[in-house]
Simulated scan of single mutants.
Amino acid sequence: MNTMTFESRGENAAAAPVANRAAIADDKAMLRAAAELTRDLVQPRPTLYWADLVGSAVVGYAALAVAVTVASTGWAVLAGVVAVLALYRGMSMIHEISHIKHAAVPGFRAGWNALIGVPMMIPSFMYEGVHNLHHAKTRYGTAEDPEYLPLALMRPWTLPVFILVSALAPIGLLIRYALLAPLSALSPRLREAVVARYSALSINPHFRRRAPQGEEKARWTRWEIVTSLWAIALLALTATGAVSLKAFAIFLAVGSGVALINQVRTLVAHLWENEGEPMSVTAQYLDTVNVPPPALLPVLWAPVGLRYHALHHLLPGLPYHALAEAHRRISKVLEQDSPYHKANYAGLPGLVGKLAAATMRGR
């Protein structure tokens, strides 16, 4: 869903030592090597997709059940952390749904919605048709990109606000599906606003989504109804005591934890240094981040291939399980002065520090 509007530094932005990304030309050797070295990696592996999804859901919901029922506070917290990490991994597969050819992994979108999208109130239509705009060469980093804000050029306070506001995501999603969805069915004007402003997993507060058409509209309507019924049922069961307030609060806390981790990952997915100009593919790559091995923690906070986010922008059609091998091949072939190596970073703390320092320089 859309977040709040953040204030730019305006004239002070010129003080920040940010590279002119829009002036970077494409490195044809890098683009050619990336394409040629990975042609045999483009086929998704359905068994792995399903195993990853089902495994994440089973572990996540089992841990959530333990957190709700166990008497020990320590064990409840530990189970809650496991639930957050497992469900976050499952949720992250929405990224794959927006890229894969669905015939290559039959039924996966429906399975993901049933196991993750509906229970967590993030049906796949909230990302499909939105994320692809982020990858459009003429849209990336511009005002028309739903997933971009020039965070490096904004006020320092925007970073903690950007992260903390995500903790309210479960409340916002409950309002979206338990209240706005049914009410908007009665009011065309409200429906227009709900579709345009509250039906996308975006961070650009100025982004307005177009109404779905044809098959997309039918699929959207089907999953929105199911998600709305689930949200209403959850509130009704809690109000009547069938679901305890403790269980409801833990469910919301786990949802907040998932949203917080995802927002931190989003914070370091790019350098956020573009001021709205169209960029070459190489410039987009250099504004994006890889966190390859030997770093270990990205397995948790950037799962399902998200640790290779810059590489993904070079090759958005590669399935997540192929990115590590693609990175190994490309890194081995390209010289050290290639732009490819300049998008690789050591880990989360350094990336957060780099972004925070960029905002501080322009105060």
Score class of each variant (00 low, 15 high):
1 M>T: 03
5 T>L: 05
6 F>A: 05
7 E>M: 06
8 S>Y: 04
14 A>G: 09
19 A>K: 07
21 R>S: 12
23 A>M: 06
23 A>I: 03
26 D>Y: 05
42 V>G: 14
43 Q>N: 11
43 Q>L: 11
44 P>Q: 12
47 T>W: 14
60 G>V: 03
72 S>E: 01
73 T>L: 02
82 V>Q: 02
84 V>W: 07
88 Y>H: 15
91 M>S: 14
101 K>S: 13
104 A>N: 08
113 N>H: 01
113 N>L: 01
119 P>A: 05
132 N>G: 00
135 H>N: 06
141 G>I: 10
144 E>G: 13
145 D>R: 07
149 L>G: 05
152 A>D: 03
165 V>H: 09
171 I>M: 13
171 I>E: 00
173 L>D: 01
173 L>V: 00
179 L>H: 00
180 L>T: 05
184 S>M: 05
189 R>M: 07
192 E>F: 04
195 V>E: 14
197 R>A: 13
198 Y>V: 04
203 I>L: 10
212 P>D: 10
213 Q>N: 10
225 I>W: 13
226 V>W: 07
232 I>L: 12
248 F>P: 12
251 F>I: 15
252 L>W: 07
254 V>L: 09
255 G>L: 11
265 R>Q: 15
265 R>E: 14
285 Y>A: 09
286 L>R: 11
286 L>Q: 10
287 D>A: 14
287 D>W: 08
289 V>P: 02
303 P>M: 09
312 H>V: 02
313 H>S: 05
317 G>N: 11
322 A>I: 03
327 H>E: 13
339 P>R: 14
344 N>Y: 07
346 A>W: 13
348 L>D: 08
349 P>M: 09
351 L>D: 08
356 A>N: 00
356 A>I: 09
361 R>H: 13
362 G>A: 15
